[in-house]
């Protein structure tokens, strides 16, 4: 029974159920071709990389009680910077130059994160408003960088970060996994996680316990900026161009949703990176499944909405208590009811 009380139980069940559906509907769920993994599952993993990265940073920001609406714009800027610089290269296939450019784009993203963090922690603006500024202006900056055009690049090393394979696995997914592992190590192997949760629980109490609350808050926005920048690179490498209008459009909402589905409360405090990973994979899989099972395109958002509503309710302890309260929870039937919708 305790497993049923775990906040991650229902999201995990739905994720597995969706994957099972895909297993039956897709002609190739997972196979090996040319020494690479091919099929729906690797596609889901590859496609989930940007959302995973953004949601990861969002988790840390939310743990401090903040929110970062600017991630989509940061994605656009980072993609624009990279594509602009690559398009200026004499040899777009030079690995060294591309790596350097990726580094530059990420540094730019980190600086944007620093700007957010400074507004929140130093100026004291409410996070939702502070990051709204960059959300609005950032896309303009991206448009300015690309001069309103869509910049196409023909760089195979750049494309590799989105579409390449390494050890049979999609590189984009490996990057995301690397970021997740690094974040877990950074937060759970050091005291950072504890200090983050403390700041999220109460900035005042944390300050009086000798924690440099501001510094930690700024750090989370910087990390969020950097990860969003990385996500922007993967996004633009995937389409081999910089599209400052649609890059990362509305991704902040999906990312916040992923974090919340993963059991991290928006008021800050306790956070779960594993939960965020499940949440992000779930949202990505949901999108793929909707197409796979042949839901008409006009109904995709409605379908997603229904699942989201169900998930949000499943996250509410009160709801579970009221609905399953006296009755024995019967997960099997509940899942079956939701899948074929």
């Amino acid at each position: 029974m305790t497993i049923l009380k775990n906040r991650l139980f229902w999201p995990a069940v739905i994720l597995v159920a969706l994957l099972v559906v895909n297993m039956f509907t897709s002609n190739q769920f997972i196979t090996v071709r040319d020494g690479h993994l091919f099929g729906t599952l690797p596609d889901i993993l590859r496609g989930s990389a940007p959302l995973l990265l953004v949601a990861l940073g969002m988790t840390l920001v939310i743990a401090t009680g903040g929110i970062d609406l600017s991630v989509g714009s940061v994605m656009a800027i980072s993609g624009a910077v990279a594509c602009l610089l690559i398009s200026d290269l004499g040899n777009q296939n030079s690995v060294g130059s591309v790596l350097l450019i990726i580094g530059v784009a990420i540094v730019v993203s980190l600086v944007l994160g620093l700007w957010n963090g400074a507004l929140v922690a130093a100026v004291g603006i409410q996070p939702i408003i502070a990051t709204l500024i960059l959300m609005v202006a950032g896309r303009g900056v991206a448009q300015l960088i690309t001069d309103g055009q869509i910049i196409n690049v023909q760089s195979s090393p750049y494309a590799t970060i989105a579409t390449g394979f390494f050890l049979a696995m999609p590189v984009a997914f490996l990057i995301a996994v690397g970021a997740v592992v690094l974040t877990v190590l950074l937060t759970r192997r050091t005291a950072l996680g504890l200090l983050l949760e403390s700041v999220g629980g109460s900035p005042t109490a944390s300050r009086l316990a000798g924690i440099r609350s501001r510094r930690i808050t700024v750090m989370t926005y910087v990390v969020s900026g950097g990860l969003a920048g990385l996500a922007g690179l993967i996004y633009s490498a995937n389409i081999k161009s910089a599209d400052s209008i649609s890059a990362g459009n509305l991704i902040e909402l999906d990312a916040i949703l992923a974090v919340v589905i993963g059991g991290t409360a928006l008021i800050g405090g306790r956070f779960s990176i594993a939960g965020t990973v499940i949440g992000a994979l779930l949202i990505q899989t949901l999108g793929v499944t909707v197409v796979a099972v042949g839901v008409p395109s006009k109904a995709t958002l409605l379908f997603k909405a229904v699942i989201v509503v169900a998930l949000c309710l499943s996250q509410s302890a009160t709801f579970r208590q009221k609905v399953f309260g006296r009755i024995k929870p019967r997960p099997a039937t509940a899942v079956r009811a939701e899948v074929p919708a």
Binding site: T190, A191, L194, G201, S206, I211, I216
Partner: peptide
């Protein structure tokens, strides 16, 4: 301004010592 209700007794007790050591030295 004192306790952090969500955190455990252990985490609350080590908090100040941990803060003075810095996050890199858990």
């Amino acid at each position: 301004e004192g306790i952090l209700g969500e955190l455990t007794v252990r985490e609350n007790i080590i908090l100040a010592l941990q803060a003075s050591r810095g996050w890199t030295r858990p």
